[in-house]
Design a protein around this nucleic acid. Sequence first.
RNA 1: GCGAGGAUGGCGAAAUUGGUAGACGCACCAGCCUUAGGAGCUGGCGGUUAACACCUUGGGGGUUCGAGUCCCCCUCCUCGCACCA
Length: 832
Amino acid sequence: MRPTPIVGPDSRFGGLTTATASCLRGNDDGLSGAMRRPYFECMGSADHPSEIPAPYEPVSLEAKWRARWAELGTNVADIPNAARPYYALMMFPYPSAEGLHVGNMFAFTGNDIFARFQRMQGLSVFQPLGYDAFGIHSENYALKVGVHPAEMIPRNIANFRRQLERGGLMVDWTRSLSTTDPEYYRWTQWVFLQLYKQGLVHKKAAAVNWCPTDKTVLANEQVVAGACERCGSVVEQRFLEQWFFAISRYSERLLANLDSLDWSETTKTAQRNWIGKSEGAEIWFDGIKVFTTRPDTIFGATYVVLAPEHPLVDAHTTEEQRAAVDEYRERASRRDLVSRKTSKDKTGVSTGSTVTNPATGEQIPVWVSDYVLMEYGSGAIMAVPAHDERDLEFAHGFELPVKKVVHEDDTLIESGEFTGLTVHDAKRAIVGSLAAKDKAAAVTNYRLHDWCISRQRYWGPPIPIIYCDDCGVVPVPEKDLPVLLPMIEDFKPDDSGISPLARHDEWYRVPCPTCAKMARRETDVSDTFLDSAWYFLRYPNVGNDSVAFDPDVTKKWLPVDSYIGGNEHAVLHLLYSRFVTMVLHDAGLIEFDEPFTKFRAHGLIIREGAKMSKSKGNVVNPDEYIEAWGADTFRTYLMFLGPFEEGGDFRDKGISGVRRFLDRLWASVRDSSPDTAPDAEVDRKLHATIRKVGDDIPRLSYNTAIAAMMEYMNVLRKNDRVPRRAEVESLVQLVAPFAPHLAEELWEQLGHSGTIFDSAWPTFDPALLATDDVDIVVQVNGKMRGRLRVTRDADESIAHALAMADTSIAKFVSGTPRKIIFVPGRLLNIVV
RNA sequence: GCGAGGAUGGCGAAAUUGGUAGACGCACCAGCCUUAGGAGCUGGCGGUUAACACCUUGGGGGUUCGAGUCCCCCUCCUCGCACCA
C-alpha cells in the first residue's frame, strides 16, 4: 500500500478522465428530462481545466474496467482447482429480439451482488449465464417477422451478451451455453435416454390440451383457466400419441423433500399446492369405485356421478336412457375446457340405473356429468349434497334428493353405528369398517400429472427415438447423439397435429440402430422445460464434449449453492429440475437428489406505479439508462428501489439520488487525506456500517445496505469534512458489489493493485460499537416522554433517579409509580 | 371458492426479539455559495395547534406497562390455483 499522492488531479487519476466535450443540455439529446446527464459532469470542461478536479465519468471508466476484467480473466472461475467452490446461479433468460428487459437486469444484478460479496468472503465463486433459446416463443416470433430462428437466435444472443456485459456482471463467459447449441442439446437428448432407461418415459394416446393458435400440445401447467398461457386461445381437447415423463411417481418425494430445502416459503407452498396431495378413500358402490376425501359423509350420499369419459358409463346406462346419455357424452367431448372447468351451470344426464350405498344399503341413482373429471381420483364420485356445494347445485338442478345433514359441528349424526363420532374418528372408522367387507381402501391422491414432453413443433431438440417396423420403439444409441435438428425453411406448424419435421422424409427416414432396416425418426421435439431442467449441471462442464457432466467436477460444484429467479417458475421449472435431479441420482449418476440448496425469488419491477408493457410504452430500456447514468448507478438504483424479494417501483427521478451518492464517493476518495485526525463518531459509524452491510447482503436486503452506506457518507462528509484515507477505503469495498467498476477504479486510485474483488471484506471492531454511554427512552404510561444518556451498565434506580430529575419527564409523574419497567440499555417505563 | 403475500408521509420505502414510527432516497421549502445553478453545502419537511400538547402505520375490537409488529373480526389490493370430490 502506498500513500495517496496529494498532487494534481491528473496524476491522481492516472490521466484516465478527460472532461466531456459534449455536455448534453437542453432537449436536443432526445432523452427525457430525468434521463439527461447531470450538469456537473460538465465541470472540468475547457473553461476551468486546471482548478476543477476530474469528474466521475462512468461511461469511459466502465469501459476501461470491462476491458481489464476480460483481459485478466477476473471473472473466470477455476473449475478444476477452486479451493472453496461456490456456485451462484441465476435463471437464464430467453434471448428475445427486444433485448434485455430491466427485470432481467434487476434479477441478475441481485445475484451478482451476492456473488461478488461471497467472493470477497474468500470463496471461489462461479457465476455462469446462458440462454434458454429453444421453444415456441422464439419460433412464433420468427414466424411473425419471417426470419428463421436459427438466424435470429444468434443475433439476439449477441445483443444480450453486449447488454449483459455492460451491466458489469461477474459472469464467467468462458462457460456460457445456449440450449440451441448441438453441444448442449446433445446432452438434453442424453437426459431423455437416461429417463428412458429408468423406465420413466412412456408413450400414450391421451386427451391433450391443444392450442388451435400455436397448433401444439400444451402441458397442464401451460393451460391457464382453460386458455393457452401464451396466446390466450381457448384450449381444445385432442387425442394424440404423446411422450410422457412419469413425474407423478415422484410426487411423495417431491413433496417430502421440500421440508428440508432452504427456499422461499411462498415457492414451497406453491409446489405443495401443485403436487396437491389429498388423503382419502376409494369406496365401492357396487361396481363403481369412487374417490372421496370425506368418507365420513357417506351416510349423506344420495347419488353417484361418473365422468362422461368413464368406461363404466355404458354398462350402467339403461336402454331408455341410452340415447340421452350418448348425446350428452358427445356434447361433453366437444365442450371446451373453459366452460367445462369454470362454468357454474352444471349439466348432466341420468343413466337410469342405481347402485348400492355400501354404508346404508340404499339404492341410489347413477348420473353422468362433466363436473366430475376423469383425470382426477377414479373419475367417479359419491354426491353428498348436504355437505358439498357442487353436489348441492347439481342436485337442485336435477331435482335429486338433497338428503339429510350428517354432521353437527364436528360430530356425526344419523350415521348408524358411527353416530356420535368426531369427523376425524369417523373417517377412519368408516373406511375401516367398509375395508373389512372389501368395499373400501384408504388411498392418497396427487393432483400432479405426468409431464407431457412432446411438442409438434420445429424449434426444439428432436426426441431421440426411432420407430422400426420390426424392432418397435428403439431409443437412439447414445453414441449417435445428437440427433441434429435439420435446417428447414417450412417450419410453420399446421393443423395436422404432426410436427413440421414429418414433412421431411430425407430427415426422418433412418436405418434402425438395431436391425439396420429403414425406420422412421420420432418427429416431435421435446418441451423447452426439459432443456432448462438440467442446465445447471452443464455449466461447469461446458467445453467437455465427451460427457454431459464430469463426476469430479459435478461433485465439486453441485448442488447449486444459491439460486435466484422469478417466482413465475415456482412450479414448472423448479419442479421439473428437482424431478430430473432425483432421477439422475437414482440412476447413480450424481450424488445429490436436490439441485438447489437455497432458492430465493426476486420481486418484480413496475414503473411509476404501473406494470411495464410494450403497449403502454413504459418499458425501461437498460441501454438508455446505462448510457446516461452509468451501469454502476443503474445497478445500485435498481437495488435501492425496494426489497429485492419484493421488487420495486422504478421512478425516473429517483435515480439521481443514487448517482449523487456515487459522485460523493468519488469526491470523497479524491479529497481524502492521510492527515485528517481520527474522529470517534465517524469511526463508530464506519464500523456500524460494515456490520450492517455485511448483515444485509446475505439476506438480500440490498436497499437497506445502500441506505446504510448513504448514512455513513452523510456523516463522513458532514460540513465538507476532508475524510481520512482509511475511512473511505473500507467504504469503497462495501460499495464494490453494487458499483463494481467505480470501486475498482477507486481501489486503484487508493494505490492497490489487483482486483478489489480479491481483497478481503472489511471487518468491524465490536468493541468500538459497544459504547460506554447509551441513550435510553423514558416512557410514562407507555408514552414517550424523553430520553436519557446513561452509562451502559446503569441500573433501574439510577435511570429512575435521572428521569425524575428531568422536569420535562417528571411533570408527567405524580405520586408514587405503580410499576416500573426497565429494559437495560433500552428503555424505562414509569407506570403511574 | 381455496392458497400465498400485502395496505406505513406528497412519492419509493425503513423499523432483525413486542420497546424512540417514518432511517435512506425522491419531490418540495428556506438559507449559504455563485457571473450563473438542473452543481455543492446547511437546515426544514406526517397531521392538528399560537403554544403546552394531542392525533397518526387500511377499519373495528382484544392481549400488554408498552402493538406497525401478537390474537379475533372486517374492507380493499396483488399474485397463484381453481368443478381436484
